[in-house]
């Protein structure tokens, strides 16, 4: 069952200049992106900074209004939701952010932070909400004794557990995880990843994971979309993508990840992308990667490559795989 379906999503940010805020151009942060997430599936968007992955997440979370396109959740387009329908949507879609300390209000007690979504959506007393909150806190591995503490009393890992508890409290269908372990130490990261995995199984949750860390993506996702300058350039099941990536960008990205195992290092061949990603104000014509692509052809600078289905659930946006 498809839970979320993003269709031709576009998000352009106007660039204003001068006294009267004249629009002089657009940052095309997300340019025509489509993907879907099934029930109880972990889908990841991976890419470097400026690829547009966070903008997509923020559109889904209703923090941004898309410029164009549809976001269909449980069969309904949510881009124009209002009133009760919108509140219902917020109940089903939650989020966990990168920096746990910035995502918790420093002046609220832990139990109140987790109780807040319950109070906003259910007709229950503050005490009942707190009791439920403590149960959720215990489920994510925090002792009830922390309930009356403030976020500043916690370690990074504990604070991220509180953020997860807050997202979990309403038993949502989808949780957007925006770099959930990037700010944590390695030894704590593994605890949080395992917790997220357990919760998705237990509560039949779907995740949309936004990350630049390919090792985390490989560990936790079922399916992955690779983003470059506002486009998804390759989409495949996790194992397929990591074992036989097709798009030159995916190949380069993967080969750039440092590997702690020296014995594996020798087997890998490095594909270097020269230079840095161009700005998304005026992306290159044709394929957006072509100025940096090691396998560039004539056609690449002429037209935008189509999204080509190369295998089961495996799509690549690259001229190399177009039928001649």
């Amino acid at each position: 069952m498809t839970l979320l379906n993003v269709v031709n999503l576009k998000k352009y940010f106007p660039i204003r200049k001068g006294l009267f805020g004249r629009v002089v151009g657009y940052v095309k942060a997300v340019d025509n992106v489509s993907f879907s997430i099934s029930e109880n599936e972990v889908f990841s968007l991976v890419g470097e900074s400026g690829s547009g992955k966070t903008t997509i997440a923020r559109c889904i979370l209703k923090l941004y209004d898309p410029t164009d396109g549809k976001i269909i959740f449980e069969g309904k387009d949510i881009t124009r939701l209002k009133g009760k329908d919108l509140k219902d949507y917020h109940r089903k879609v939650q989020a966990v952010f990168q920096n746990p300390f910035l995502s918790l209000n420093p002046r609220m007690r832990i139990a109140d932070i987790v109780a807040e979504p319950l109070l906003a959506h259910m007709k229950i007393s503050r005490n009942e909400a707190r009791k439920t909150a403590i149960k959720v806190l215990e489920r994510v591995g925090l002792s009830a004794s922390l309930a009356r503490r403030f976020p500043s009393d916690l370690s990074g890992g504990q604070a991220q557990r509180v953020a997860i508890a807050r997202a979990l409290a309403l038993k949502p269908k989808l949780i957007v995880l925006d770099e959930p372990t990037s700010a944590l130490d390695v030894s704590v990261q593994a605890q949080i990843l395992n917790l997220l995995e357990d919760l998705s199984r237990e509560y039949k949750l779907s995740y949309l994971l936004i990350s630049h860390d390919l090792s985390v993506v490989r560990y936790i996702s079922d399916r992955v979309g690779v983003m470059y300058l506002g486009n998804i350039v390759e989409e495949a099941l996790t194992e397929v993508l990591f074992e036989s990536p097709l798009h030159p960008y995916t190949q380069a990205l993967l080969s750039a990840v440092p590997e702690p195992d020296p014995s594996l290092k020798k087997l890998r061949k490095r594909i270097m992308l020269p230079g840095e990603p161009p700005s998304s104000i005026s992306p290159p014509k044709g394929c957006r990667l072509h100025p940096r692509c090691p396998r560039v052809m004539d056609v690449c600078s002429k037209g935008e490559p189509p999204l080509i289905e190369v295998g089961e659930a495996h799509k690549v946006k690259c001229w190399l795989y177009a039928k001649k």
Binding site: L61, K62, L63, L86, K87, H90, R91, V93, Q94, A95, F97, Q98, N99, L102, S103, L104, N105, P106, E116, P117, A120, H121, A163, R166
Partner: peptide, 17 residues
């Protein structure tokens, strides 16, 4: 623009709250 304000929006709180 801090994440905890975003989190409050995602919970569905009103702007006043």
């Amino acid at each position: 623009n801090l994440p905890y304000v975003d989190a409050a929006k995602i919970i569905g709180l009103s702007p006043f709250k």
